[in-house]
């Protein structure tokens, strides 16, 4: 027969309290190296106490206490490697571009959906007389009819820094939504890609029809390539989640979805700094005539080219930019 519960608790309690103190120290980062030996020993003792409590005192508060103590210790001892600053560097040198290159199928699907939207939007405006009224918002239509570039007024309303942060937060929200709505079996993402494509396509077609194509080009050239790439990448991330939900293959749905979501969010997180950069360009460079159009086009092509060169080559085996080591998480 086991010893009485109160005796068991009073005998072992000092060590449990010592373990709790060490775990608190570990949490606040003040754990000494030598304490680790003690922590290890105390954790094993507490584990065997828990096994004892499970056998002899199930359902008692002592059992629940030990269960909680051991799970805290378990979490502290067996935690996965933490991503710190070194991990961040590795993520951008290797993790992010490699993750994207492994998902070219989804990138292609996302690009296809967005392009389909573009074509449909453009075709409706060009071939259907009332198409523009259907697809292009009224204020935009009025500006185009008056042969005014609506983006020119952007800078007269707010300074470029404010415009840039507005654009940045807005773009981030769109990117997050495009990814997150993949949770609706990918339908939300597909809808956002299509509708954004239709919106852009119809505006481009309307401007081209009204002879304002060059002004529009002047506005979008500098930031367009990278911004559209980021939208398409976050679309790929959303489609990954949707695909995992629909077709988990041999795995359980929950396990596969979890694995794919963690990978997909890397694509979204990876895009964030590029969105910040492009927000600055869209706020400072794109509006107005401060910079000549050919310069904007050159800048846009250069940024787009650099962005895709980075995505295609960074972290490749044997490449200049590649570095050994494993990605975070």
């Amino acid at each position: 027969m086991a010893e009485p519960l109160p005796d068991f608790v009073s005998r072992r309690r000092p060590q449990w309290e010592e373990l709790s103190k060490l775990l608190e120290a570990q949490r606040s980062g003040s754990l000494k190296l030598l304490d680790l030996y003690v922590l290890d020993r105390l954790y094993r003792r507490a584990s065997s106490d828990l096994a004892r409590a499970q056998a002899f005192y199930p359902g008692t508060d002592a059992h629940r206490f030990l269960n909680q103590l051991c799970s805290t210790a378990y979490g502290a001892i067996y935690q996965p490697p933490r991503d710190r600053l070194a991990g961040l560097k590795d993520f951008y040198l290797r993790g992010f571009p490699c993750a994207l290159r492994e998902e070219t199928r989804f990138l292609a699907a996302s690009t296809a959906l967005f392009s389909l939207g573009l074509l449909v939007g453009a075709a409706v405006v060009l071939f259907e007389p009332h198409g523009a009224e259907l697809l292009v918002p009224a204020p935009l239509r009025e500006a185009v009819a008056a042969k005014q570039m609506w983006t020119d007024s952007l800078l007269s309303v707010m300074p470029p820094g404010v415009a840039a942060s507005h654009i940045l937060t807005n773009n981030l929200t769109v990117t997050i939504a495009t990814f997150a709505f993949g949770a609706a079996f990918g339908l939300g993402t597909a809808w956002l890609l299509l509708s954004n494509g239709v919106h852009l396509g119809s505006v481009v077609a309307l401007c081209a029809r009204e002879g304002m194509g060059y002004s529009l080009l002047s506005f979008v050239a500098a930031h367009g390539p990278v911004e559209l790439s980021v939208i398409v990448i976050s679309g790929a991330a959303g489609l990954m989640v949707g695909h995992a939900l629909i077709e988990p293959g041999e795995r359980t749905r929950a396990a596969f979805v979890k694995e794919r979501s963690i990978k997909a969010v890397k694509l979204v997180v990876g895009c964030a700094p590029f969105l910040a950069l492009i927000g600055v360009i869209e706020g400072y460079v794109s509006p107005g005539d401060l910079f000549p159009t050919p310069l904007k086009i050159a800048l846009g092509l250069a940024l787009g080219g650099l962005f895709w060169a980075y995505l295609c080559f960074a972290g490749r085996e044997g490449h200049l930019l590649s570095r050994r080591g494993s990605g975070p998480g």
Binding site: I176, A180, I262, V265, V268, V269
Partner: peptide, 13 residues
């Protein structure tokens, strides 16, 4: 970890 937390919080939307 960071990525798990990012997924669960971005999905708030």
């Amino acid at each position: 970890g960071f990525f798990e937390s990012a997924v669960r919080n971005l999905c708030r939307v």
